[in-house]
Amino acid sequence: MKAKERWFGRLYMLLVILVLISFLFPFVWMILGSFKNQAQIMSTQNMLWFTPTLNNYISVFAEHDFVRFMFNSFIVGLVSTFFALVLGLPAAYSIAKYKQNQIGLMILVARIIPGISFMIPWFILFSQVGLVDTYTSLILAHMLVGLPFIIWIMISFFESLPNELEEAARVDGCTIQSAFVRIMLPLAMPGVITSSILAFIFSWNNFMFSLVLSGERTRTLPIAVFNFMSYSEINWGGLMAAAVIITLPIIVIALILQKYIITGITAGAVKG
């Protein structure tokens, strides 16, 4: 029996290693490519042994103004996530407390509908009111997906909290709003952190809405990657350096807050 368990353990480890390689190889290749010149990237010889260069990163910041693009992405991501939380948390609590299942189903449908379906209406609307190439249009567009996402995640968290906690707070003199802010919201904080991070990641990586609604002033990082592509050539080194810059903040945030993400996902999967 022990020999069989050891065999299954080794097989499991082998599968884990294969999965890790399949996921990590593109990322490692991207990082290595960001330190190569164009000839080294296109060559199949000495893929791991080469003389590294920082020219790609210098080009990204000196020639393509990536600091401004990063600022735009941070502004849009943070503000859209903040307002999605302000609107989404009370909505999720109301749906969970009063069993408003039909509203929850409508929000799920809104979450499932592809974002591309809203692009033309959004563009026509914002063009009419002069909001194209503004932070306002991008923030509202990103909230279109981030808000239903936060609501749907937080419903399960609030449903897992016992109603007796709010009732005890009401007995002590709290209003419904005060009980929500002081009692229920702190208890659901793992879910708040988890949904916030995932909504911010969506906004950070969003390409479609920014392609239509942004301009020279509000261009975000995913759109800025186009600067490395032309009709006759693709600057692979600069493209990979830009991809590393886009990916690195998300990885840092995930590593710092991984404890809360794991706790939030686990808590949200179990209802009381």
Rank of each mutant, 00 (worst) to 15 (best):
E63W: 01
A62K: 11
W29H: 12
N72K: 01
R111Y: 15
W49T: 04
V79G: 12
L105I: 12
T53L: 09
S80N: 10
V60N: 01
N37P: 05
L78F: 12
G104A: 10
F27G: 11
S80C: 08
L32K: 02
I41Q: 09
A62D: 04
F27E: 14
V67F: 10
V109P: 03
T51G: 02
T51I: 11
F82N: 08
F27H: 13
F74S: 05
R68T: 13
P52S: 04
Q38L: 04
L87K: 04
L105R: 09
K99L: 05
N37L: 02
M47G: 03
F35I: 06
F66H: 00
A84R: 08
F50W: 05
A96Y: 06
P90N: 10
L87I: 10
P26Y: 14
M106T: 13
L32E: 00
F71Q: 09
T44H: 11
L87R: 06
A91Q: 11
T53C: 04
N56E: 01
E63N: 14
V109H: 04
K36V: 01
I31F: 11
A62V: 05
T51Q: 07
E63C: 00
N56H: 01
V76P: 01
I58K: 09
L108M: 11
D65P: 04
V109S: 10
T51P: 01
S94T: 13
T53M: 10
S73R: 02
L32W: 03
F74E: 03
Q38E: 12
A62R: 05
F25L: 15
V86E: 12
D65C: 00
N72Q: 03
F83W: 11
P90Y: 11
T44A: 13
I58Y: 08
L85N: 14
W29R: 15
A84N: 09
R68N: 09
G77A: 15
N37M: 07
A39Y: 05
P26K: 14
I95P: 07
G104E: 11
T51F: 12
Y98H: 07
N101K: 14
L48H: 00
N37Q: 10
I103Y: 13
F82Q: 06
N101C: 00
F82E: 07
M30G: 05
T81L: 06
A110V: 07
N101T: 06
I107F: 14
N56F: 00
I75V: 15
W49F: 08
E63V: 00
P90F: 11
P90W: 08
Q102G: 13
A110H: 09
I95R: 05
